[in-house]
Design a protein around this nucleic acid. Structure first.
Lengths: 147, 147
DNA sequence: TTCAAATAAGTGCATATACACTTGAAATCA
DNA sequence: TGATTTCAAGTGTATATGCACTTATTTGAA
């Protein structure tokens, strides 16, 4: 009798559908960004750091809607490759993250590739559907992040 | 001068927005499913297996739009906990996955919690926006999975 | 019929994700 | 001022993700 319900899991589960789409789109972005040497997630980190200039790990994690400990580990490869710099802040508890020259350069190099990936998505979905998707994703994050 | 572009990464990046939403929603589902003892991703695997009855790893991976090797590893904890059974098929290359009694029971136990999580999402987004989101996610997967 | 191509799956490696717990520093309060 | 609370960050552990490479089996063709 729960057979009906189980079918709706496959078709209607918000989490499953989000994760599927996330996998597909991440693979596309990773592939297109390949020549730049950064992955999709790393590119987003670099972009966020470029805007924030200099920011604590906790604050950056909040902006990216990412667990703080996840961010700590995501920063590791970027630090190892010299794209970012992590220094103690005035408050000795805080560690401040910022882009290095090399990181800034990697971001600039990756930017046209990112636009390419974005264009692929908008071409496939069409502008209207893409706008709607983005808007709904953004709303989802806003509405669910604090419950 | 790429400063404008970089701002649009933070707001418009399809990949970033998808991953953010995926994180938020996965955390919600994991939390609500907690009493059932399965995570959101594991729940989706159990549901898919319940529908497929008995299926090869490659085929199940295709259905879930998941890399085959990712699925292999995702099945590990479920097999360890006795929720699924993996046996060689007639074709000796193939390994056939199926739900155990225990897995079926876990799925049934988790189902009302899943509905609870779904309801939370639809209540926050509202029916129309939720329907649109789901539809757009589904289209995104269909349109981008083979390019 | 034998050998090459194709197919199914696993492993090594690296990144991504987050919870529980710990450590160390700052702020607050008795 | 000294003790407690709060806060920022790191670590241990476990799951999730996918690419490159390998192994084993099947299929197909010379």
């Amino acid at each position: 009798m729960q057979d009906q319900s189980i079918k709706t899991v496959a078709t209607d589960c918000t989490c499953l559908n989000l994760r599927k789409a996330s996998r597909v789109v991440t693979q596309l972005f990773d592939q297109v960004l390949q020549p730049s040497g950064v992955l999709a997630n790393q590119f987003a980190l670099l972009a966020a750091l470029s805007l924030a200039e200099s920011v604590s790990i906790t604050r950056l994690a909040q902006e990216l809607v990412m667990d703080r400990t996840t961010l700590t580990r995501n920063l590791k490869p970027l630090e190892r490759d010299g794209l970012i710099c992590i220094e103690p802040g005035q408050d000795q508890r805080v560690r401040v993250v910022s882009l290095t020259e090399k990181g800034q350069a990697a971001l600039v190099k990756a930017l046209p590739l990112w636009k390419q990936a974005q264009t692929k998505v908008t071409e496939e979905l069409g502008q209207d559907r893409w706008q709607a998707l983005l808007s709904n994703l953004s709303d989802t994050v806003s509405l669910l992040r604090e419950i």
